[in-house]
Write a protein that binds this DNA or RNA. Sequence first.
DNA 1: TCAAAAGTGTTATTGATACACCCATGA
DNA 2: TCATGGGTGTATCAATAACACTTTTGA
Lengths: 230, 230
Amino acid sequence: MESTTQQCLSLAVSTVVFALRPHPSTGRTTPWLPLVRRIREPYEGLWALPGGPLEDDQDLADSAGATLLRTTGLAPRHLEQLYAFGNVDRSPGERVVSIVYWALVRRDEDARAIDGDNVEWFVADDVHGLAFDHDVIVRYALDRLRAKITYSPIAHAFVTDEFTLAQLREVYEAVLGRALDPANFRRQILAQGAVEPTGRHVTGTSHRPPALYRSNPAHSRHSLTIEETS
Amino acid sequence: MESTTQQCLSLAVSTVVFALRPHPSTGRTTPWLPLVRRIREPYEGLWALPGGPLEDDQDLADSAGATLLRTTGLAPRHLEQLYAFGNVDRSPGERVVSIVYWALVRRDEDARAIDGDNVEWFVADDVHGLAFDHDVIVRYALDRLRAKITYSPIAHAFVTDEFTLAQLREVYEAVLGRALDPANFRRQILAQGAVEPTGRHVTGTSHRPPALYRSNPAHSRHSLTIEETS
DNA sequence: TCAAAAGTGTTATTGATACACCCATGA
DNA sequence: TCATGGGTGTATCAATAACACTTTTGA
């Protein structure tokens, strides 16, 4: 029964946007995310996930995509619903239910990203002290990213159209936080059929020129994903 | 930014409730779910998932639990968020965003379940022609149930406190829809440490008395689950 | 010719699967 | 003693991990 009762709560859509950048101290590639400084109560002055109220004429994923555009200037490459947070006490004052998405930004697009006002990027694992329950949300999104990359080809969303297996491996290593054996990685990726060789090679390297691959669209979609027109 | 804008949409919580019962024709145990007949427009007369508007003072999971109580007379054994559905056009007329949960009912509790008015149970795989986008939701919940049972001890939510491995195996077979090798099933279940022997045995069988087990609470919780006070 | 990363080959280990076989009970 | 499902043993095959080794380039 989806009733017609008028309700005294607001519905917001927020997004955890991940991009891979070098860690400022170690230099190793690691997930980063953009946060927005709150300019009003509650939690004025604190950092929070980018988001906003759901518009009447906007699908949930569209709202998340618009947020991504506003904060990073980019269109979503991978956009997926994470979870709906709606505990009564999660926001002081008004009741707010937040539907949270997570998005992945490609390394080449990330390079030409432009931050909006009051937007700053942080190393995802170091984030804490956020407004609302956003610490928990970021933690959950990171866990999900790390779990999903092991059984789904989402890593492709971080690389350019054509890529070397070393670049793809760097994505896995950045997300999982550990080194992977290049030989076994190559075999596993090729065996699952999610990439196919373009026949072209990178030139100008000081070593054997690596082959270029592209992701195989026939294999890239999993049955358990809800299809949404982004 | 979780803004304070007033919105012209309603927020509902619906629940896909699964119980295992014999299939009316084949006799094999299979997932069933309760549906509610709609008594008003839109979709008047059609079957729909049990649910209702989110109350101001109610957490999301509490709302789903109340729905389960109303339709089956039972308290939730396993209750978990499935997905938030909110496309603009999913409900004619008013904009409705539905946060959908799924619940599992134990076989012993299911036996003493009492249906509410206009509530009827159906074989989950045969359900179609529901109101709104509920066909898609049921399909998605079934997919998730079948996927999750392979890597998480949710099967325990279908059996009594003490159970034989044959009973637990019947749950897996009912959900997955195929027979499992009893010998290998035993080893896999015991190896993952999610069950422990009680030391007691079933008596009165016309064959070797099977041992009774209980689920091991230390192992039963996975890191990727959001903790909710049901 | 040397360094460095691409790419191939080989072996050991682990886990899944299939299935033969013994055990304990009631009828 | 027979039928029935509980429970154990074991061989086979596939996936994973570890690592030695060859290839191709620029410097």
